[in-house]
């Protein structure tokens, strides 16, 4: 991310870059994922250039245009442009149908992230494991990732809650890979730096992150992606946000929405650290989604 880039500047830059590329080397079919500014601008550029656009991880909805911001707006804007929608589950398919998308244009695929995590687990070697000298076998590990734009103002509360929890439980180690967003960097530096059992680190390489996730007792996050990864690995997740469109981990009770209140975050983290380590086994490989194969089949049907 360029330091301090605004959404407008980012959107404009990506639109122009994509157009330059499409003019120079026009694809016949474009695929993008989810609800980021990248996916949003890719859909718009594809539309302007009349190139069929396929949307992966389609159909997530909060039905509140401002939350998550700007992702919900992105999703709602991408949907009418997409020629085909790959929904992770039946729930997202239903959301799209409610928005007027024909069911013939929707394929339920499962989540590609399960395939990604499975591949990464097989690649985690002792050498690729994240190394922190403070982390020994017996020490409870809390993995923290917080970055959301609409919660930046509220990030302070979450960080206060975490700091209090860390001070109350010095034997636990809190590792925070910090998002490069300058506002997020500043908040973490201001509120958490100097606490002995809190480690602020750069974003980790994916195998390292997965190895830490596998090792962790508790995950505190506002990221839907981390929620998915942790739920897949059977980890207890405290979601520091006011709502979520993702259902991962809720059925099993391993994911809990804790809001953005300092006191509630402090209490919940302490409760979880006092409890027994709670994990379930991640699904066996044969029960995995074959999302990428299903998507390939649909692409083949179109491009021949």
């Amino acid at each position: 991310m360029k330091a301090g880039q605004s959404l407008s500047h980012l959107t404009a830059r990506l639109l122009v870059n994509l157009e330059d590329h499409f003019m120079m080397d026009r694809p016949d079919l474009v695929l993008a994922h989810g609800d980021t500014t990248t996916c949003f601008t890719t859909a718009i550029s594809s539309f302007y250039h009349q190139i069929p656009f396929f949307h992966v991880e389609a159909g997530l909805r909060s039905n509140r245009l401002n939350s998550p911001f700007p992702e919900e707006f992105n999703r709602q804007t991408i949907a009418p442009i997409a020629r085909h929608h790959f929904a992770p589950t039946e729930l997202e398919k239903e959301n799209l149908i409610k928005d007027g998308v024909s069911s013939s244009l929707i394929t339920v695929t499962g989540s590609t992230i399960h395939e990604a995590v499975q591949t990464m687990i097989s690649k985690v070697t002792p050498a690729s494991k994240a190394c922190f000298s403070e982390l020994n076998e017996s020490r409870p590990l809390v993995l923290v990732t917080l970055h959301r734009r609409e919660t930046t103002q509220l990030l302070q509360n979450t960080l206060h809650g975490l700091k209090s929890a860390a001070l109350s439980r010095p034997e636990a180690l809190f590792i925070c890979p910090v998002h490069p967003n300058p506002l997020v960097q500043e908040a973490f530096q201001t509120y958490l730096k100097g606490t002995e059992n809190i480690i602020l680190t750069e974003p980790l390489a994916y195998p390292q992150f997965i190895s830490l996730l596998m090792r962790s007792q508790l995950v505190v996050t506002d990221s839907g992606g981390v929620q998915e990864e942790a739920a897949f690995l059977g980890k207890k997740v405290l979601l520091a946000r006011s709502e979520t469109e993702r259902t991962d981990g809720f059925e099993s009770g391993l994911t809990q929405l804790i809001g953005l209140n300092s006191e509630s975050i402090y209490k919940t983290v302490l409760d979880e650290l006092s409890g027994a380590v709670c994990t379930i086994n991640f699904p066996k490989i044969n029960s995995l989604s074959r999302a990428s194969e299903i998507i390939s089949n649909e692409v083949q049907r179109v491009v021949g």
Binding site: L31, G34, T36, T119, S223, A291
Partner: peptide
């Protein structure tokens, strides 16, 4: 996250 999720695709 997009890179990770689109890698299998």
């Amino acid at each position: 996250p997009e890179a990770i999720k689109m890698a299998p695709v």
